[in-house]
Computed example of a mutant assay.
Amino acid sequence: MAENYVWIDGIPVPPVYFPPEIIRETHETFMVRDGDIFMVTYPKSGTHWLIEIVCLIQSKGDPTFTKSVPFTERSPWIEMDESSKTLRNKEGPRLITSHLPVQLFPISFFSSKAKVIYLIRNPRDVLVSGYHFWHATTYIKRPESLEEYFENFLQGKVPFGSWFEHIRGWMSQRERDNFLLLSYEELKKDTRNAIKDICEFLGETLKPEELELVLKNSSFHVMKEHRRDKDSFLNKDSFLSKNETYFLIMRKGITGDWKCHFTVAQAEEFHKIFQEKMADFPKELFPWE
C-alpha cells in the first residue's frame, strides 16, 4: 500500500527507504571523514550517471567493478537505513550518495575536508523525469497526472522538498574548496571536459586511454546494459517491475525533454517562478537558461 510522506523539518521524504529517525541520526551523529567523497543531487538530476563516472575514474576506466557491484553498494545513500549503518563501519575512502538538503546533511561535514560534488539539472527536466518515476512507484502516493505533479513540484510537495530551496541551500557552499558544482547539461554537452574537471577536483589523473574508457563505459547505452538486474533494492515490491524501473531510472538520458510535456501556460508559469526564486544567483550558474 502506498504511504504518504513523512515531513522532517518541512522536507517531505518517502519513509520506506528514508526513515526519518535515520535522517535525524545521520544529521546529528554521522562522522564524516576528510577522505569522504559525497555525490549530492536533488532526485532525478543525473545521480546514477555521476556515481558511474566517479567509480570509473577511480578504476581508471575498468568497468569490472561497476558491472559486478550494485551502485547502492559502491556509493550508498547516507539517508537510507541499511546504507547508513554500512557506511559507519566502512573503511575509507568512502563514496557516499545523498539527496539531502543542506540543512539535513551531517553536521560533521561542515568542519571536515570531505569533498562534495553537487550536480544540478534543469528543474523542468527534473520535474518531468520525477513525474514518470514517482507515478510508477507504489510506496508513496502517486501523482495522478503531470498537471498534479507540476503543481506539487512548484509547492515543494514532492520527495525531498522544493527544488528551488534544495539548490539555494547547497549553492551557499559553492565558494568552498571542497565543493564542486556541475550541471547535467554541461556534463551532457562536453562529457570529456567535465570528467577532467571531476578528476582535478578529486586529485585523480587519467591517461588518455583511461579517459576514453571512462567516456565509453559511462555512456547511456553501456550503463543501461551493465546495470540491468544488478541493483538489488530496485527488485523489491515497491516498484511495478524491474523492467519498468530501469526504464524510469534511465528513461531517456537527454536534455530538454520537458518541451514535449509542458503546455505553453506551464512553461510561462515555471519561467516566472524560476526567475523570482533564483533572481539573486548569477545566470551563468544555470546553463539551461
Rank of each mutant, 00 (worst) to 15 (best):
H166Q: 11
L187R: 06
L211P: 12
E204P: 01
E186H: 11
V158E: 10
N178P: 14
W163D: 02
F153N: 05
W170G: 08
K157D: 12
L187H: 06
P208E: 11
E212K: 05
F179P: 04
R227P: 01
N217W: 13
N235A: 07
M250V: 14
I195E: 05
K216E: 08
Q173V: 05
D237S: 11
E148A: 12
A194Y: 09
D197A: 14
Q173C: 12
R168E: 14
S162N: 03
D190C: 05
H221Y: 03
F150M: 06
F150G: 07
L234Q: 05
F153W: 02
Y246Q: 02
R251C: 10
S232T: 15
L206G: 01
N178D: 07
K196E: 13
E209N: 03
A194D: 11
K188Y: 11
G256S: 06
F160S: 10
S218T: 04
Q155E: 15
K236R: 13
L234A: 05
L182Y: 03
E147C: 08
L211V: 09
E186V: 14
D231V: 00
L187S: 07
E175S: 15
D231N: 10
P208M: 05
L240E: 04
K242C: 03
L215T: 02
D177C: 07
K242I: 01
L234C: 06
L206F: 09
M171E: 01
Y184C: 03
F239H: 04
C260S: 15
E186K: 14
R174N: 04
K242R: 14
L206E: 01
T245I: 10
A194M: 12
G256C: 01
S183R: 08
N178A: 05
L154T: 13
D257Q: 11
P159Q: 11
F164G: 10
T205E: 15
K236F: 15
L206S: 00
L146F: 01
E175W: 10
E186G: 15
L187M: 13
Q155K: 15
K196L: 14
S219E: 06
F239G: 01
E165A: 14
K242E: 14
E225R: 11
K252P: 13
G161S: 04
H166F: 11
L187F: 13
L202V: 15
F220D: 06
R176P: 08
N243I: 06
D231R: 04
F220T: 10
D257M: 09
Y184G: 04
N193A: 11
V222M: 12
R251H: 10
Y184H: 11
F179E: 07
F201C: 02
Y149E: 12
S219W: 00
G256T: 12
E244F: 05
D231E: 09
C199A: 01
H221W: 00
F179V: 09
K216W: 07
K242Q: 13
H166Y: 12
S162E: 03
S219L: 01
D231T: 00
D197M: 12
